[in-house]
Amino acid sequence: MERLMKIDRRLLYLISVALVAVTIFMPLGLPVKVSPLAVQTYDAIQNLPDNSVVLIAPMYDPGAAGELNPMLKAMLYQCMERGYKIILGNTNWTLGVAIAHDMITPIAAEFNYVYGTDYIEFGSKPGGSVWMQSAQTDLAGAAIVDFNNDPIGQFPLIQAVPRLTQEYIAAVLVLDCGTPGAVEWLQIITQGTSIKLIVGEIQMSVPDSMTYVQSGQYNGMIAGSRGGAEYEQLVGRPGAALKSQDTMSVIALMVALFIVLGNIGYVTRKR
């Protein structure tokens, strides 16, 4: 039995690679049930007042793109279908805005969104929470130029949103994978205001972030790739997250099995 603790990890890697390959080449089409949290998140965005302005902050880099890209895409679709004005940008996550730029451009074209009026990209600004404080008092002054390096103050959407306060924005949608992230947006911008804070969270940070959902500080949370799959279904745009659930389910089973085997080995060794 003790051998169960000493399974060659290379064997585990080999089995995992085989499982991933099999589920990619032969999808099982396992059903993904939508959870109440996903519905709450979808509703939180859907029920914002018509013509709301939302700020979408892709606070991530390519490392987390696998989980967060599908969420961002679905969020963009939902916001544009509802006709919200979108301010897109972040602080300190340069590659996040580059990823988001590639994503929003075709979707905006699909919905005939006009740059500068219906949506704008202010790019990535340095400063983290300090920058957020500046944007809270003067958005154009804090951003200065947009993603394309054009002076941002000339655009109607920015003229209409002089500050990141509850008078001007209805919600902040954060794709979160580290620091600065959703907690900083909560601390500086949304805490104690009517601005909704909706978070797309990587699987790893879900337990931590759940406390903010329970306390009502996050009005909604897309929880990891599974949450992304549920949210894609609600938005009616099945995509990469939903596609990955077969593999994730099979892998979760495999990991659970090996944890049980390892623990059997551990317990019997102790005896």
């Binding site: 007042p49 013509n51 709301s52 302005v53 004005k85 209409a160 949103v161 306060t165 509850q166 008078e167 001007y168 924005i169 209805a170 009517s194």
Partner: peptide, 11 residues
């Protein structure tokens, strides 16, 4: 600007 959410006065 019609899309503004002019809800509350500054606290």
């Amino acid at each position: 600007m019609m899309w503004l959410l002019a809800q509350e006065q500054a606290p």
